[in-house]
Design a protein around this nucleic acid. Structure first.
Lengths: 165, 165
DNA sequence: TTATCCGGTTTCATATCGCAACCGGATACG
DNA sequence: CGTATCCGGTTGCGATATGAAACCGGATAA
């Protein structure tokens, strides 16, 4: 028996989690975004078992999030680099980081700062906005079932169907 | 032997994943954001095993992401609702959804639309921006180790230390 | 030429998860 | 009132995922 796969679900969130939803994946991607390239970087930074790391790295390569390429330092080894798909996960990583900073901060303060490289300033929170760039209130955001999608099981109930965002 | 915990890590991303990093957590939160309230809603929508769902719901309650409160439909049952902490995970959910829409879309199209309730329009992508609201290029975003944090293991190497975002 | 580093693989014990059966209290039905 | 069904679980079991430690072959360093 396999652990259930999300890949057949139509939902984009489920399909994304199929790629990055296991325990270590997002931390590996975080380290890659912070400059980790080599097996040992990930291994010592994360304290992950080597076989598990091998497995997760291969999954990320199979999902085209990372790619293996010749080491940039001249050695014969290879290194792991983010693909564009991988780099575009930055909003997810940043959102997770900022939520953690606000709600579950470590007593010593955050260990990672997400900044504007030009100014060195910390970025404002990644947040839903209108086309104009204006920040939205969460109450203004709708998460709706697309017309073609199967009905939510809790729809057509007596009460209401508004989402609670 | 337990699966390794992230809670002792200083990194906010790891600390957040401690709450929402297991396979089902974010899908449960997604369903809650789309209006799911009752045990059976989650169970039939996700196709998750009941004991696993019980476990995940209790974890989310322990993490103050969900709370149990009397049912709004007058029955004697209870229902699960997002706390404010939970609602503030919306940027994470939206970022995951939008990444999936772009990179791993289902052939039938996305099943979930994230919209502006006022206009019904789809939201632009959640993305790092400056205080002004201007969208940033990922190359302009820095993910830096805070001064107090332990050094990254790949720092002080011959090559360079710029991150690759 | 020997020792160490690097990036793994293998083996084994434990932990997590899916599945199906069961269960007790609440509700619905006749 | 009596029985059946719904709801929200719990229990037991087998399969999968993970961690720890030992081992390994090729590249590099001394």
């Amino acid at each position: 028996m396999k652990t259930k796969s999300f890949s057949n679900m139509q939902c984009s969130i489920a399909r994304t989690l199929e790629h990055v939803g296991s325990w270590w994946s997002l931390l590996i991607i975080r380290d890659a975004m912070m400059g980790a390239r080599r097996f040992k970087h990930f291994q010592t930074s994360l304290g992950i078992a080597k076989n598990t790391l091998t497995s997760r790295l291969n999954d990320l390569i199979a999902g085209d999030i990372l790619e293996k390429c010749p080491a940039s330092d001249g050695s014969n080894y290879e290194e792991y680099r983010l693909t564009e798909r991988g780099r575009e996960l930055a909003p997810v990583i940043i959102a997770l980081s900022q939520w953690g900073d606000k709600w579950v901060a470590h007593e010593d303060g955050p260990s990672t700062m997400i900044t504007d490289k030009q100014t060195g300033e910390r970025l404002p929170r990644v947040w839903p906005r209108r086309e104009s760039g204006e920040r939205m209130d969460l109450k203004e955001v709708g998460m709706l079932r697309a017309a073609e999608a199967p009905a939510k099981v809790w729809e057509n109930e007596e009460e209401n169907t508004d989402d609670s965002l």
